[in-house]
């Protein structure tokens, strides 16, 4: 590893320690590392957006004479809508930004409507309407939990009837299912955070200090 490689490793190690130091208490080193991270992220994103959008998607298209005049006009539509969005910064002409917003809302709704409905509603409902008593005992138990969990979970979110009697019981079972789901999610989150720590330990002890090969 050359000088700049080593420099990068040392810098990354010091920034890592700076961020971890927050675990003890808020301090100047942590604040400095945080500010560096925010600044670099903002700068990086700005550059990426400039080159990927303004340059590649607009400038290169409108200056490309191999394209038809129609293909060169279309990017101008996007550009003008983008400029209109910035009109929010000025009170008097702020209303202009409603046009690009309307375009975004309409286009996104149109794109999402059918695809989301098919993937997230129909497919999920279809996978819940299943015969319970089929296959080996493990499958039967799994199917039962899917059906009961879905039913009781839906009952919990049904607020047009008081949660009493059998309805209340189903609602209470529903909240148990929800709690177990949140617990599983939390467990995965803990695992995820520990993995990040392992990654940093790997860097500090392996790449930086060279204690582990």
């Amino acid at each position: 590893m050359g000088f700049w490689g080593q420099f990068g490793v040392w810098l990354a190690a010091l920034l890592t320690i700076g961020i971890i130091s927050f675990l003890y208490k808020d301090n100047f080193l942590y604040k400095a590392c945080e500010a560096i991270f925010v600044g670099i992220s903002a700068g990086y994103w700005f550059i990426v957006y400039y080159w990927d959008n303004l340059y590649k998607k607009f400038y290169l298209q409108v200056t490309n004479h191999d394209l038809t005049s129609w293909e060169r006009i279309i990017p101008w539509v996007g550009f003008i809508l983008g400029v209109m969005m910035l009109s929010r910064l000025f009170e008097k002409i702020g209303w202009l930004s409603r046009w690009p917003l309307a375009f975004i809302v309409g286009a996104t709704a149109g794109l999402y409507m059918m695809i989301y409905f098919v993937s997230n509603a129909m497919a999920q409902v279809a996978s819940t309407i299943i015969p319970v008593f089929i296959g080996d005992w493990a499958t039967i138990i799994a199917n039962f939990f899917i059906v009961a969990g879905t039913f009781c979970g839906l009952v919990y979110f049904f607020f047009s009837k008081e949660h009493k009697g059998a309805f209340g019981l189903a609602s209470r079972v529903g909240i148990w299912f929800l709690m177990i789901t949140f617990g599983a999610s939390f467990g995965y989150t803990v695992m995820s955070r520990m993995s990040l720590m392992i990654g940093r330990l790997d860097f500090l002890f392996g790449t930086w200090l060279g204690m582990i090969k």
Partner: peptide, 17 residues
């Protein structure tokens, strides 16, 4: 997926997506 995301994508496994 990252651990944080995993639990919320299991329904797609059950539905065969």
């Amino acid at each position: 997926l990252t651990g944080v995301m995993t639990a919320q994508y299991y329904p797609y496994l059950g539905s065969g997506q």
